[in-house]
């Protein structure tokens, strides 16, 4: 995976988590994995499509998820249910959205999908032939792991079907 795609995510996650938790966030050691990802209690899944394509996971334990939702929403959550699920998914959405803005500034225009939330430990997720780069972030609520399985998009972000017809070729 191109390391250029990593920094936008680390920066975005750092900025968003620091702003939301109002506490220091520290980064752990990077890891590259080729095998499948064995899920933690909570995994927020988002996809990127465009000049950079692939998948981003944000994984955490149930306790971290509940604490994070409590801090984010100012309401006490003991378990990640209902509203707390939306809160945890939203944080993944906000980080990824911010990262895609940074990617776009670097010349890689991408679109992000809505978040999908996976609840349950011990399933494995395969990103097939795309290796995963893992960045652990220590927050006040506990560790949050970012998994990036990204590659440069095949069609440079545009598909022929989506290109608008130049004015000169349009029938008046």
């Amino acid at each position: 995976m191109n390391v250029k795609f990593l920094n936008p995510f680390v920066e975005a996650a750092y900025e968003v988590l620091t702003a939301e938790t109002r506490q220091e966030v520290t980064r752990g050691d990077l890891k590259l994995e080729n095998g499948t990802y064995l899920t933690d209690d909570l995994t927020v899944i988002l996809s990127l499509v465009g000049a950079v394509e692939g998948t981003v996971f944000y994984s955490m334990s149930a306790a971290t998820g509940a604490k994070l939702a409590t801090i984010l929403m100012g309401e006490k959550f003991d378990a990640v249910q209902g509203l707390a699920q939306s809160g945890v998914a939203e944080i993944g959405n906000v980080i990824t959205g911010r990262a895609s803005m940074k990617l776009s500034e670097a010349g890689f225009e991408t679109t992000i999908s809505p978040p999908t939330l996976l609840l349950g430990k011990g399933a494995s997720i395969s990103t097939l032939d795309v290796p995963r780069l893992i960045v652990p972030l220590m927050t006040v609520a506990g560790p949050v792991l970012i998994h990036l399985a990204l590659r440069q998009g095949s069609a440079n972000g545009l598909r022929a079907a989506q290109l608008s017809i130049p004015k000169a070729f349009q029938v008046p």
Binding site: T55, S86, S126, Q162
Partner: peptide, 23 residues
Amino acid sequence: YQSNISPPMVIIGKNVQVSTLDF
């Protein structure tokens, strides 16, 4: 309707919950 698809991922394991939130 123009839309693009992401690369696929495979989830292996029974009885995990996948929430599509408000979808």
